[in-house]
Design a protein around this nucleic acid. Structure first.
Lengths: 128, 128
DNA sequence: CCTTGACCTTCCTGTAACTGGAACCCTTAT
DNA sequence: ATAAGGGTTCCAGTTACAGGAAGGTCAAGG
């Protein structure tokens, strides 16, 4: 498989796949002309990576998850811990964003949004 | 005021304040020895920036909001539009994160997290 | 045989919003 | 004289790629 084939199969841009090779997440072989040649196992890894990234795991998390995936003797506790930490992180980010949204929607609602200069949003940001 | 004074007053790190000067958000005067000297108006701007950044506005949004704040003849509609767009953005991000959380908490719940290698999380990421 | 177009390659730069650190200057107190 | 605690500039690193330039490769068509 050439890079565009595996790009299509995984949904990852070719650029991203090259980047993943650069940082050591995949190591496709090379054909005589220098083109990358992806084996099935490479495609599976990249699919794994695409899904993990879609769930918001960082590249370093992905690296660790990939290592655990390839380790037949892994303990599921290790995977569980990484996922649970990421879940906490997501929850924190949701809470932060929800707090912003509450404040902001309040302000947006209070602001007339017409052509007058009076604006509660700016007043609040200025410390009223 | 020296930089550490205004840092304390605004809650922004000195590094961040220097950065804001570098990108033109504030322009404190300089004293003879080269130190930055912050006027009250500078401190107010920085407070404004700190609050806007806390609400998740991008630097470019902040730059625009600041310009509107300083423009006595602004239309509140301009502010309203920036804030409403940002609110939409926040909502999108919350939805994205919530989707991740739902999937992930499902997986975390299903994973025993013990020392056996069997792991539904990895199975799912692999495409089961 | 030559060209054209679609691939592929590497390398360099830029993104957002800072943070950390090195090397060095200024001021005040001991 | 020196030490502590400010301040300054400049450079590199962070995350996870994206865009683009310059150039090699391959298959089809005239």
């Amino acid at each position: 498989m050439n890079i565009s084939d595996v790009a299509e199969r995984t949904g990852l841009p070719a650029k991203t796949i090259r980047y993943y090779e650069e940082i050591g997440l995949v190591t496709p072989r090379r054909s005589a002309n220098g083109y990358r040649v992806f084996a099935e196992s490479d495609a599976h890894k990249l699919t794994f990576l695409a899904r993990a990234r879609n769930l918001g795991f960082s590249i370093e998390d992905c690296r660790n998850l990939l290592a655990l995936w390839e380790d037949r003797s892994r303990a599921s506790a290790d995977v569980h811990r990484i996922a649970a930490q990421h879940l906490d992180d997501i929850d924190r980010r949701i809470n932060d964003l929800a707090a912003m949204r509450d404040t902001l929607s309040d302000l947006v609602r209070k602001c007339s949004g017409d052509d007058r200069p009076d604006c509660p949003i700016l007043a609040d940001l200025a410390g009223s």
